[in-house]
Simulated scan of single mutants.
Amino acid sequence: MSRTGLFSRAGLAVAGCVTLLLGLSGCFTERQNEGAKLYATHCASCHGDQGQGLERLIPAVAKTDYIALHRAELPCIVRKGMKGPLTVNGIAYNQVMPGHEDLTDSQITNLLNFLQTNWGNTNQPYTIREASELLGRCNGSDGQ
């Protein structure tokens, strides 16, 4: 084999690897901001575009103790909703929050991870397995 043939094969191999990696990164980047997009679609109209809540009517999700203190309940709250009193950052609330049965376990995980790590919240992200197991407690896991 000639020296130029060797180099052209190596070049093709490198180009193939680069194309593969770019294709894979496209798969991951499509979901990279999914949590923020899901929040904007399903939560922002009530909890605010920056998670600030609405006065003493709807609790904030930014800089909140509730997200850290109620980690195990959050997946079911997103899936099934909730009603009744709760306290967030020392303020009492008593409104109905609708559930989001249309979201998959994976989407709930991404949404909650967005909340766990943004707007002053510095909590541990969920794994899909953890979120699905927690959703199983309220018969809310769809296995997706």
Rank of each mutant, 00 (worst) to 15 (best):
M1W: 03
S2D: 15
S2V: 00
T4Y: 11
G5A: 15
L6A: 14
F7K: 13
F7A: 15
R9H: 11
R9E: 11
A10E: 00
A10N: 07
A10T: 11
G11S: 10
G11N: 02
L12A: 15
L12T: 03
L12I: 02
V14N: 06
C17T: 11
C17D: 11
V18W: 04
L20K: 06
G23W: 02
S25A: 10
C27A: 15
F28P: 09
T29I: 06
R31S: 13
N33H: 14
N33R: 12
E34R: 15
A40P: 03
T41Q: 15
C43A: 08
A44H: 00
H47W: 02
H47G: 05
Q52D: 04
G53C: 03
R56A: 14
A60K: 12
V61S: 08
V61L: 14
V61H: 05
K63R: 11
D65V: 07
Y66T: 01
Y66W: 01
L69R: 10
H70D: 06
H70G: 01
H70P: 01
R71Q: 08
A72V: 02
E73W: 04
C76H: 01
C76F: 00
P85I: 01
V88S: 10
N89C: 02
I91F: 12
Y93Q: 02
Q95W: 05
V96S: 10
H100N: 09
H100K: 07
T104Q: 03
S106C: 12
L111G: 00
N113P: 00
F114E: 11
Q116H: 11
Q116C: 09
T117K: 08
N118A: 11
N118G: 07
W119V: 08
W119Y: 14
N121C: 08
T122Y: 07
Q124C: 00
P125G: 14
E130V: 09
A131C: 11
A131V: 12
L135C: 10
L135F: 09
G136A: 13
R137A: 12
C138E: 02
C138F: 06
C138A: 04
N139C: 04
G140R: 06
S141H: 07
S141W: 04
D142V: 04
Q144E: 12
